[in-house]
Simulated scan of single mutants.
Amino acid sequence: MENILLAAGLGSRSEGKKLLLPYRGTSIVAKAVSASLEAGLYTIVVTGFRADEVCEQLKSLACPSLLVVHNPDYALGQGCSTQAGARHLHEGEPFFISLADMPLIGKEQYDWIAGNAHMDVVRPSFQGRFGHPVLLGPAFRQIILGEKLPFSMRSLLSKYPTQRLEVEDAAYVTDIDTLEAYEQLLTTGR
């Protein structure tokens, strides 16, 4: 399986710092990429804002299962970055879309979603709130590539039947959007 890992956004609510912040001996972005690789996923990291610094954080993870691509149009939003990653997916394979600012997602979360998937759109849900990673069937590569910009994945996926996987683990909805969220992560682990 494959994973488009989005690491392109401006991170404006964290002063553009969130992906580069230290976490458990590495950075937030390197932790997310490492977890994807540990799950056995061919990982396509899409960079944008601060791309050189993000790439520097990923140097030690270089391997045949990791592809880093740059989206020069990252300011057009998440849909544009998702398309940039989708261009590098292999046809006919299901794939995840995940976010680089979710350091609590690990191999076990990817494995659990993959092991419980029964539809072409599978989303974890914690206390009624959709989270990540999202698992999509092979047909969604072309659907994403054919979508007119700008678009959000939330609006795109709302058009399709979705398997909602209820989870009891807040990791699926814990993202580091602000410096306050980062401080809470360091203090509580959540």
Rank of each mutant, 00 (worst) to 15 (best):
E2L: 07
L5G: 00
A7V: 09
G9S: 10
S14G: 06
S14V: 06
S14F: 06
S14E: 07
E15F: 14
K17G: 06
K17R: 15
K18I: 10
K18W: 12
L19C: 00
L20K: 05
P22A: 04
Y23M: 02
R24A: 12
I28S: 02
I28K: 00
A30V: 01
A30G: 00
A32V: 02
V33K: 03
S36G: 07
L37R: 01
A39G: 02
G40M: 06
L41Q: 05
Y42M: 10
T43H: 01
T43R: 01
I44C: 00
I44H: 02
I44F: 04
G48M: 09
G48E: 10
R50A: 15
E53K: 00
E56Q: 12
S60A: 15
S60T: 15
A62C: 05
A62W: 05
C63D: 13
L67M: 11
L67K: 15
N71A: 11
N71M: 04
P72Y: 02
D73F: 11
Y74H: 14
A75L: 13
G77W: 10
Q78P: 09
G79P: 07
G79M: 09
T82V: 14
T82G: 08
Q83N: 08
Q83V: 04
Q83C: 03
A84Q: 12
G85Y: 06
G85Q: 02
R87A: 09
R87Y: 12
R87P: 06
R87C: 10
L89W: 03
H90P: 07
G92M: 08
G92D: 04
E93K: 08
E93L: 08
L99R: 12
A100P: 05
D101M: 08
I105Y: 03
G106V: 11
D111A: 15
W112E: 07
I113N: 14
N116L: 05
A117L: 10
M119A: 15
M119T: 08
D120T: 00
V121L: 00
R123K: 13
P124S: 06
P124C: 07
S125F: 09
F126I: 09
F126Q: 09
F126P: 09
Q127D: 03
G128N: 01
R129E: 02
G131H: 01
G131Y: 01
P133E: 06
V134G: 01
L136Q: 00
A139D: 11
F140K: 03
Q142M: 01
Q142W: 05
L145M: 10
G146Q: 09
G146D: 13
G146E: 11
E147S: 06
K148G: 00
K148M: 11
L149V: 07
S152W: 06
S152M: 07
R154F: 14
S155E: 15
S155T: 15
L156S: 12
T162R: 04
E166C: 11
E166Y: 14
D169F: 02
Y172V: 07
V173T: 12
V173D: 00
D175P: 12
I176C: 04
I176D: 08
T178Y: 13
T178S: 15
L179D: 11
E183F: 03
Q184N: 06
Q184P: 01
L185S: 11
L185D: 10
T187N: 07
R190A: 08
R190G: 00
